[in-house]
Amino acid sequence: MVFNFLLLIGTGFMVSHRIAGPLYKLKKHLGEMNRDSQNFKLREKDFFKELEPLVDSLKEKMK
């Protein structure tokens, strides 16, 4: 029972980290976006990988 609880907590932490991390990075990147900013990149295993080309195309349109 303790093992299942720890497994549940660990899995919940990993999933929330994979969701909250990209959203935090997106918010930070959009706040700092200018012509010279770097491309938007997420970690390899993050969710929302489809945001990368969208943010980069938004940056190109702002030029």
Score class of each variant (00 low, 15 high):
residue 19 I to R: 06
residue 2 V to M: 06
residue 7 L to I: 03
residue 6 L to Y: 11
residue 25 K to Q: 15
residue 3 F to Y: 10
residue 39 N to W: 00
residue 37 S to Q: 02
residue 47 F to Y: 15
residue 57 S to K: 14
residue 45 K to D: 09
residue 25 K to N: 13
residue 27 K to Q: 10
residue 56 D to S: 00
residue 38 Q to L: 08
residue 40 F to S: 09
residue 18 R to Y: 09
residue 59 K to H: 09
residue 16 S to C: 10
residue 27 K to A: 11
residue 15 V to C: 05
residue 14 M to T: 09
residue 33 M to C: 07
residue 32 E to V: 01
residue 63 K to Y: 05
residue 2 V to F: 08
residue 40 F to T: 12
residue 24 Y to I: 13
residue 42 L to N: 02
residue 8 L to V: 12
residue 40 F to R: 11
residue 6 L to R: 04
residue 2 V to R: 10
residue 6 L to N: 05
residue 57 S to F: 03
residue 21 G to N: 13
residue 43 R to C: 05
residue 1 M to I: 09
residue 37 S to P: 00
residue 18 R to L: 12
residue 17 H to G: 03
residue 16 S to N: 14
residue 37 S to G: 00
residue 63 K to I: 07
residue 15 V to A: 10
residue 46 D to R: 01
residue 9 I to A: 14
residue 51 L to E: 04
residue 23 L to A: 12
residue 10 G to Q: 04
residue 22 P to D: 06
residue 61 K to N: 05
residue 49 K to H: 11
residue 50 E to G: 10
residue 59 K to G: 01
residue 15 V to W: 07
residue 6 L to Q: 03
residue 58 L to V: 06
residue 10 G to V: 04
residue 59 K to I: 04
residue 49 K to D: 02
residue 28 K to Q: 14
residue 34 N to F: 02
residue 54 L to R: 11
residue 55 V to F: 02
residue 52 E to C: 09
residue 13 F to M: 08
residue 20 A to E: 06
residue 38 Q to H: 11
residue 4 N to K: 10
residue 53 P to N: 09
residue 63 K to N: 10
residue 14 M to K: 05
residue 39 N to P: 03
residue 57 S to V: 01
residue 48 F to K: 07
residue 21 G to A: 14
residue 22 P to Q: 06
residue 26 L to R: 07
residue 42 L to K: 05
residue 52 E to G: 10
residue 4 N to A: 05
residue 36 D to V: 04
residue 48 F to H: 06
residue 12 G to V: 07
residue 13 F to L: 14
residue 40 F to E: 07
residue 27 K to R: 14
residue 39 N to T: 04
residue 59 K to D: 02
residue 48 F to Y: 15
residue 51 L to M: 15
residue 13 F to E: 03
residue 33 M to N: 01
residue 27 K to N: 13
residue 50 E to V: 12
residue 36 D to E: 14
residue 49 K to Y: 02
residue 17 H to Y: 15
residue 37 S to C: 03
residue 50 E to H: 11
residue 36 D to A: 11
residue 47 F to L: 11
residue 28 K to E: 14
residue 20 A to Q: 06
residue 47 F to I: 02
residue 35 R to D: 04
residue 50 E to S: 15
residue 55 V to K: 04
residue 22 P to W: 09
residue 53 P to C: 08
residue 44 E to R: 14
residue 32 E to K: 11
residue 35 R to F: 08
residue 29 H to W: 07
residue 17 H to F: 14
residue 1 M to S: 13
residue 39 N to R: 05
residue 8 L to W: 11
residue 4 N to H: 02
residue 17 H to V: 06
residue 7 L to E: 06
residue 22 P to G: 07
residue 60 E to H: 02
residue 9 I to K: 13
residue 47 F to V: 00
residue 26 L to P: 05
residue 25 K to S: 12
residue 30 L to P: 00
residue 27 K to D: 09
residue 15 V to H: 06
residue 57 S to Q: 14
residue 17 H to W: 14
residue 58 L to T: 11
residue 46 D to W: 08
